[in-house]
Write a protein that binds this DNA or RNA. Structure first.
Lengths: 213, 213
DNA sequence: TCTTCCATGAGACCAAGGTCCAATGGTCTC
DNA sequence: GAGACCATTGGACCTTGGTCTCATGGAAGA
């Protein structure tokens, strides 16, 4: 089912060994890889591979709490979706976690199916986010290859300006724009203007199109 | 600050008149319009204007509960962002509300600033959603004006296919495609191919661009 | 039946994009 | 200073897109 790049992995963070064991068994039972840690610090030390992942974690752990870990990860740009589990949760605690983007916040005891559903949802979300991120990064990598002038031309082409107008705007000749434009198409690996515009969209670089004349 | 179309309004739903009064006062104090209802049914009867809005509501009310109302509204496609307030909330209750898209879930007593922040966040979210929705609807309205054939051509043009290839694909002549294409550009009010592609994106109608040759 | 809309097409023509080849001057780095 | 990279431009040429006018046959609706 998950054939893109590498298989997803579920990280379990709980200071209670028996909880870890039973979660590990549960996750493995549906064919997903799993790795457990007894604390947030241990998890952070591990560094993490590049595999798509989600995190199932107890809110309250010795050292860094689950909520702290969530904040810490999102501040550092790592975005694994999180599923919180807790024995003694409070409303403010759950709201804080959910507002920070948690997939779910479950109280013990919970149904196996309930957490499995959340895990699958988390992994789906992560896979989608990765696909989008990878595509964006690829486009940004290609954009870095453009010279400053080419990038200017890129922007105006994507806005829909004809070469003549671009030349006028940049104070140069139409001929020159043609050359830049051709190089932009080549460096960006765009097969058509439509493809180029789509790239600009996917990299969230879009300005309003030039309307009418 | 809110100059787009009509000013936003905050709907307050609570069966306790004193809570309604104090929330009304609070909301008015920051210059926002407000209208209160004693129950979900009363709010639904009111129908609601087309103004951008958000809803501040008690989870527990006589008749339809806040969570039921949330479900009911999202099922019927009305999407005002909701801020829950409650005296005796539980974790599952708050999680359900947040998972269903609530902006916040506050326990009484709460700080004035806390709920005002949530209200502003809700309104911002609503205004953004509306802008996007309006733009998409405008594009869809224009798309409806296209004949079936024109819509086919539209799709292939946006994919970046040249007229000749489109003609081939549709089993007709390049000349005919030119005619359709010109009409598409006119009916969609697109000033350029780039503009047309952007419309397809904004209406979420995008297919992968034709890569390479 | 008559009108309207749709899809189709021809011929002509201009504008714009794309691709060759070739060349110049500036800046930066080794 | 030499070489590399960048921005610039010219000319020639072909392809593609865009715009005219004019015309036909079919389908839907009044």
């Amino acid at each position: 089912m998950y054939t893109t790049a590498s298989a997803p992995i579920v990280y379990v963070l709980d200071d209670d060994p028996s909880v870890r064991r039973s979660l590990e068994r549960l996750v493995r039972s549906v064919g997903l890889d799993v790795q457990s840690f007894a604390s947030a610090a241990e998890f952070l030390d591990h560094g993490g591979s590049d595999r798509p992942s989600c995190v199932v974690l107890d809110v309250r752990m010795p050292g860094l709490s689950g909520l702290d870990l969530q904040e810490c990860l999102s501040a550092s740009g790592r975005t694994a979706p999180m599923i919180f589990i807790t024995g003694h949760g409070t409303v403010p605690m759950s709201v804080r976690a959910m507002r920070a983007g948690a997939v779910n916040f479950l109280q013990k005891p919970f149904e196996d199916q309930e957490i499995l559903d959340s895990i699958h949802q988390a992994i789906d979300r992560e896979m989608d986010a990765r696909r989008e991120r990878d595509r964006r990064q690829e486009i940004e990598r290609q954009l870095k290859v453009l010279t400053p002038r080419e990038r200017e031309v890129f922007g105006l082409v994507v806005e829909g300006l004809p070469n003549k107008r671009i030349a006028n705007k940049l104070g140069t000749s139409e001929k020159t724009i043609k050359v830049h434009r051709a190089r932009v198409m080549e460096k960006m690996h765009a097969g058509s203007l439509a493809g180029l515009v789509q790239m600009a969209y996917e990299a969230r670089l879009v300005q309003a199109p030039a309307r009418e004349i």
